[in-house]
Design a protein around this nucleic acid. Sequence first.
DNA 1: CTTGAAAGAAGACCGCG
DNA 2: CGCGGTCTTCTTTCAAG
Lengths: 152, 152
Amino acid sequence: MIALDEIDRAILRAMVADADLSAGALGRRLGLSQPAAWRRLKRLRAASVIRAARLDLDAEKLGFGVTVFLGVKIGTKGQAALGDFERAVSAIPEVQTVEHVLGMYDYRLRVVARDLPDFERVLRRRIMTLPGVASLDANVLLSEERRPGPIG
Amino acid sequence: MIALDEIDRAILRAMVADADLSAGALGRRLGLSQPAAWRRLKRLRAASVIRAARLDLDAEKLGFGVTVFLGVKIGTKGQAALGDFERAVSAIPEVQTVEHVLGMYDYRLRVVARDLPDFERVLRRRIMTLPGVASLDANVLLSEERRPGPIG
DNA sequence: CTTGAAAGAAGACCGCG
DNA sequence: CGCGGTCTTCTTTCAAG
């Protein structure tokens, strides 16, 4: 755990809104010099409060027009079964996120495909052959809004 | 729609692996000059194939140790009901993503909270007061893996 | 592709509480 | 010592030749 003061939180708020902000511009906005702002950023990165900068690609423009969320229940819940499932699911390129979850499902997957026929192929040849899958629920993404989320 | 050649896809693959890659380093890796690589990046951004750079923060280090996925079913499904729900849900800071979805649920929400008591507060005072909610399913996040996803 | 000017990154060093 | 400020150097960006 690291101690974050109000300036750190202001930096995070500004950077979440615009990740390409330079250290100089950031400092100008907060009344800090460029090196001071840069040092704070470096410190936040070192403490991995800032994990990384990720590129947000438009899947549709890449030819992947279909996104489906799958809720997966695993049949035999041994430690080995979970490991087997995770290893196998990590080898499927169409799977964007694997969430290990507690509640109605055991795993939630975000899967992309070019279109519905392509999704059927992924489902039948990839997902349904995964080890230990007892049941599947599907939801097709219509639209999505991502919000900054709380900082402090 | 824009036409992407093999070089564009190589650029995207390299950039999703490391979003902080400079145009110069990118060009060196692919056998392009720095301005050539930079122009390609600019073109991909202008076509919004690359939407933006997003900062990946560690919610736990910010004091938000609990992430819950909610599956929401809306009772009265008129056009107005969906708009009302979306507007109201957008005002809750703890909601990180709102996915409008087709299938077993109508919406899927990603919600963060400091701990379980804090989550109960959000659930009772924010989520359960949303207009039109007929039923809720919850799944608590244990761990998560994000993968690059397919490019071409 | 090459050049070149402006901006940003990132280090060394000093001063303050 | 921790933190911010200035100065300095190297790299990167980005437009123009």
